[in-house]
């Protein structure tokens, strides 16, 4: 994966596969503390302790189409390379929270990448069935994007309409620029 926005897309696809109806993506950039924290929280089916113990094994997967499960292990590796930390908390029937921490200015820390495109692709694919909340904090500036609120306001206009997505994409890009995050 070239950047963190692609890792995020991948992990959120896991959450969708786990039946989550609400997925929170939280990015916190704290330049003063030189820390980047990425959190993905879902209300999917969750995992038991045995499964959690195996998920970082690249040759473990619950999927039937292949015999490897690389998504979580690759994100864990990306965090490790940037002298960070990786953690999964999960409760069967309740959901899962994946947290990855990175040294912000570490030379091996992957760039955040195009979060606008990741969010738009998620909405296009599953936005009618799943609510996505994307929070991006950079120092004292914040951006919050909640598809549940947007869907309510759009009423009978589907959020995955291509024209709507284009307008939302522009809005996310504008807001990310406002808080000082590179696209």
């Amino acid at each position: 994966m070239q950047d963190l926005s692609l890792h995020i897309l991948d992990i959120v696809e896991n959450s969708i596969d786990a039946g989550a109806k609400k997925i929170e993506i939280i990015i916190k950039e704290n330049i003063r503390q030189n820390l980047l924290v990425l959190k993905i929280k879902d209300n999917g089916k969750g995992m038991d302790k045995n499964t959690i113990a195996k998920v970082l094994d690249p040759f473990y997967t619950t999927k039937k189409t292949r015999r490897v499960g690389l998504g979580l292990s690759m994100l864990a590796q990306a965090a490790k390379e940037a002298e960070g930390d990786f953690n999964i908390k999960s409760k069967k029937g309740k959901g899962t929270t994946v947290t990855a921490k990175f040294v912000h200015d570490h030379i091996d820390r992957k760039p955040i990448g195009n979060m606008a495109e990741t969010i738009i692709v998620l909405i296009a694919g599953k936005g009618m069935k799943v609510d996505f909340i994307y929070e991006h904090h950079k120092n004292s500036k914040n951006f919050v994007f909640d598809t549940k609120i947007i869907k309510n306001e759009l009423n009978d206009v589907p959020i995955n309409n291509a024209e709507v997505l284009n307008i939302l994409r522009k809005n996310i890009i504008k807001e990310l620029k406002r808080i000082g995050t590179m696209i």
Partner: peptide
Amino acid sequence: MKKLKIGDLEKIR
């Protein structure tokens, strides 16, 4: 926290 304004969403709709 700054959010997408409701007025903006009405315009989109």
